[in-house]
Every structure is written in structure tokens, then in C-alpha cells.
Amino acid sequence: MTRSEQGRHRESHDPHWIEWLTGLVSALLIAGMLGWIGWEAFTREATPPDLSIVVLATEKTGAGYRVTFDIANSATTTAAAVTVLGRLTEGEKIVEENHVIFDYVAAESKSTGALLFANDPAGRRVEIRAAGYTDP
């Protein structure tokens, strides 16, 4: 309990036990968090972004086709301005080429996005790959 008088507040000297319990639980939580982070700080090595892409689905939209995909970054640093190239090929011939830019793909995280094609990807080869990134 806190007593406020003339704008000053004074903490009571004989608090209820619940205040100590809350304080103790909080101290444990904070110690746990700092401990975990400290452990990560010592054990985790900084590796440059490592991007991989998994195509999820191909759907027909009103004006063409949509290929949705997951982009995962398995490394411990974040990649910014990640450019993803999508290419539709038939034999040696490139039918269509598109790209999309992700603002960020966070470390050890994934993002989802989609490429839109005018031509039907069915029966053709869809190649989606990350083409580059910047350090944030």
C-alpha cells in the first residue's frame, strides 16, 4: 500500500505478504529472462542470413494466377529488403518473370508472400528463389 500526501507518496513499512510474493515471482521471472538472454548471448553465434523458400500453393485469381510461398531465415541475423525472384519456364524458354521485395525476414523466422503470374503455372516449371538482401 502507498500513502499519498501533499503530492508525495510513502510506501508502507509493514506490507501485506502478497506484495512480497508478487515481488518474489517478478524477481524470478526477470532473472529467468535475463538468464535465458545471457545464455543465448554466450552460445549463439552470429551467422549471415540463410534464406530458403517453400512454395505453398498455386491458385487462380480474377486476373491470373497466384503462387504463395514461405520464406524462412534459419540464420541468427535478420535480412532486410529481401528480393524474391519468380520465374516461369517452359523447357529453355522463360515465359514470365516477376519479383517481390520483403521489407524484413527476421532471424530464425519466416514470412509469407505471393507472386502473381499472368500465365498458368500448371505444366510449366516454377522457380522461386531469393535474389539478394541488405543488412538492416
Binding site: 510506501e11 506484495e19 512480497w20 515481488g23 515471482v25 517478478s26 524477481a27 521471472l29 526477470i30
Partner: peptide
């Protein structure tokens, strides 16, 4: 510190 600041940070 234990009764107010730490719970406050949590």
C-alpha cells in the same frame, strides 16, 4: 525494489 520496481518491470 522487490515490491514495486520488479513487479512494475514485469
Amino acid at each position: 525494489f522487490v515490491r514495486f520496481t520488479l513487479p512494475g518491470y514485469v
